[in-house]
């Protein structure tokens, strides 16, 4: 009796799953479409970050965020502009296209006046006190497609549109450890191929953090998110990112993505 019930339940689950994904793009295709979204050869924008703890206490930082493609290699540089106590802190990442090759990351600490090479293996750790991870910062609303198994779950209403719901599970334990979560579910807007919402759970299945992406509009013909809020469920902390002064049209000097430019900063 129990065996029959289990078989029936399994069949029903498969049917529901099939119905949920029927006619919708496969998970891998959704990931591919997200990453195929035009983001320009280079981008520069100002990032206002508000870090808010459980009790509502808020700290603000502003930074200039630059990105440029060098062939298949992506380079990202972030320069803090305020407050005065952390101004001139700068971060640089070279994201290599070769699978399995760790990124190279550098941090410039003005108190030491030295550029420090930092380990890039632990991609899931929080980025300089925010609730975004180093991986999130580097991906800029795109995804690490090859590090996950993608499954389309269905469609749901989100942000006055209908989103594709897709689940991404790290491909192995090492990746799970590196990215710091066990599963993430994205609500992807198929009009712009940006995830408007993401829910992360840890390896034990407990809620880890949520991200809400809004104010998506075109700049220089490129869909761009201007507001991102990431909330950590572990400690109630959240970070609000406001993106402004976005510019895809102006070519960025490639020398800005070097160790020497971290010391010099941008004004």
């Amino acid at each position: 009796m129990v065996k029959r019930f289990a078989i029936a339940l399994l069949a029903a689950t498969c049917l529901v799953g099939a119905a949920a994904g029927e006619g919708l793009p496969e998970g891998d295709e959704i990931a591919r479409r997200i990453n195929a979204r035009d983001d320009g050869n280079s981008a520069q924008r100002t990032l206002e970050m508000e870090l808010i703890d459980r009790s509502g206490h808020s700290r603000k930082r502003s930074a200039r965020l630059l990105r440029r493609w060098f062939g298949q290699e992506k380079r990202l540089a972030l320069f803090y502009l305020s407050p005065a106590t952390i101004k001139d802190t700068a971060f640089l990442v070279h994201d290599f296209p070769e699978p399995g090759k760790d990124d190279a990351q550098w941090l410039y600490l003005p108190a030491l006046r030295k550029v420090r090479r930092i380990a890039a293996r632990d991609r899931g750790k929080n980025f300089l006190g925010t609730d975004m991870s180093y991986e999130d910062m580097k991906n800029e609303t795109k995804v690490s497609a090859e590090d996950h198994r993608w499954t389309t779950l269905g469609e749901e209403a989100c942000s006055e549109t209908t989103c594709l719901v897709v689940e991404a599970v790290p491909i192995d334990e090492e990746t799970t450890r590196a990215v710091g979560y066990g599963k993430v579910t994205y609500w992807v807007d198929p009009e712009v191929w940006i995830a408007r919402r993401a829910e992360y759970v840890d390896a034990a299945g407990r809620p880890k953090k949520s991200a809400l992406v809004s104010e998506i509009r075109q700049v220089d013909g490129i869909w761009t998110a201007h507001h991102i809020e990431v909330r950590s469920h572990k400690n109630g902390h959240r970070t609000v990112f406001r993106i402004s002064e976005v510019d895809y049209a102006t070519e960025i000097d490639p020398d800005l993505f070097t160790e020497r430019s971290l010391r010099r900063g941008v004004r």
Binding site: D102, A104, R116, R117, I118, A119, A120, R121, D122
Partner: peptide, 10 residues
């Protein structure tokens, strides 16, 4: 200097 996994050597 270089990074190897979680370790940086300098």
């Amino acid at each position: 200097s270089n990074a190897f996994g979680d370790l940086t050597v300098r």
